[in-house]
Amino acid sequence: MNDLVDRIHRFRQSDRWIFSYMLFSSLLSLVASFVLSVDAIALAQNADAALGCNINEVISCGKVGVTWQANLLGFPNAFLGLIAEPVVITIAVASLGKVKFPRWFMFAAQIVYTIGLVFAYWLFYQSMFHINALCPWCLLVTLSTTLVFTSLTHVNIRDNNLYLSPRLHSGLQAALRMGVDALVITLWLAFLVAAVVLKYGPALWGG
């Protein structure tokens, strides 16, 4: 038993696991961004696409796509995913092929992706509490962005790419060895699921 747990935790720290997981999540995120971008174009071309309140899309009324929050920078937010996710995919694939990126590069990737994460959660918050609508693809973006962020952070702590003080770094590494990160992610995802289910509940499955 202990041996199995040992092996799982060792595998969790390996390049193969971290970058496969990063690749998978960034592909998910890219697909979701792509669908949302296509939707955004369809909305722009054809107002009919927005004219109705669709029961199964929980309250959306086609209005999430036309709110100011959905076009914060003057274009559909989903375009950002189309720009950013291929970079992450490249990092993941190259790293699986044993490419080692310079420290400053990974550090920069971390900073940019953290900004992306903040943006994703801001949108999640807006659609939950201000637009009062959730769209399934937007939720997928929230989820996959979270997963990509955790994989990137994991590898950057493991490889000491974040210019942390030695003490903080060794503390964080011990936390990684003990699986604290996995616990935090699980709790966080459970919290998000609970929030969505409690707020929208029956409406999500077509009540």
């Binding site: 003990m178 604290v180 616990l183």
Partner: peptide
């Protein structure tokens, strides 16, 4: 010590996931 904490955490994760 780390291993003990790690095992507790591992089972907590399983517990939380199951509960969710």
């Amino acid at each position: 010590k780390e291993r003990r904490v790690r095992n507790i955490i591992t089972f907590s994760i399983l517990g939380v996931a199951l509960l969710a």
